[in-house]
Amino acid sequence: MTGLALDLIGAEVLFPDGIRQGRLSFADGVITADPVGRSVDLDGFLVLPGIIDLHGDGFERHLAPRRGAMKEMVEGVVSAEAELAANGVTTGVMAQFFSWEGGLRGPEFAARVFAAIRDVRDEVVTDLIPQLRFEINLLDYYEDLPAQVAEWGVDYVVFNDHLPHDRLAQGKKPPRLTGQALKAGRNPERHWELLQELHRRSPDVPAALDKLVPALTASGIRMGSHDDHTAADRATWRARGVRIAEFPETTDAAEAARNEGDSVVLGAPNVVRGGSHKGNASAVDLITMGFGDALASDYHYPSPRRAALMLARSGICDLASAWRLLSDGPARILGLADRGRFESGMRADIVVLDTGDHRVAATVSAGRVSYIRGEIASRLIR
Rank of each mutant, 00 (worst) to 15 (best):
G3V: 01
A5C: 13
L8G: 11
I9V: 12
L14P: 11
L14V: 09
F15C: 06
R20A: 11
Q21S: 15
L24Q: 05
F26Q: 04
G29E: 02
T32A: 14
T32M: 08
A33L: 09
D34V: 07
V36E: 13
S39L: 02
V40C: 07
D41M: 08
D43S: 15
D43P: 00
L48D: 07
G50E: 04
I51R: 04
I52Y: 06
L54H: 00
G56I: 03
D57I: 09
H62M: 04
L63G: 06
L63P: 12
R66Y: 15
M70H: 13
M73H: 10
E75C: 08
S79Y: 01
E81P: 01
L84K: 03
Q96H: 13
E101S: 09
G102P: 11
A110F: 07
F114Q: 06
R121F: 04
T126R: 03
L128A: 02
P130M: 11
Q131Y: 03
L132V: 01
R133I: 02
F134G: 02
E143W: 02
D144R: 15
L145P: 08
G153W: 09
G153K: 00
D155P: 09
Y156L: 15
V158K: 07
P164R: 02
K173C: 00
P175C: 08
L182G: 11
R186V: 01
W192I: 14
E197F: 05
R201A: 12
R201F: 13
P203E: 14
D204S: 15
V205P: 14
V205D: 11
P206Y: 08
L212I: 03
L212G: 07
A215Q: 15
A215V: 02
G220A: 02
H226N: 02
G241D: 08
G241R: 11
A245L: 05
F247C: 00
F247G: 00
F247Q: 00
P248I: 00
T250M: 04
A254M: 07
D262C: 11
V271S: 13
V272K: 01
S276C: 01
S282W: 05
L286S: 06
T288Q: 15
F291A: 09
A296P: 11
A296I: 11
P302F: 08
S303A: 14
A307W: 07
A307M: 03
A320E: 11
S321R: 11
L325Y: 05
L325F: 09
S327P: 03
G329Q: 01
D338L: 06
R339P: 04
G345D: 07
L353H: 08
V360T: 02
A362Y: 05
G367Q: 10
G367E: 14
V369E: 06
I372Q: 12
I372H: 04
E375L: 12
I376L: 14
S378D: 15
R379D: 10
I381D: 13
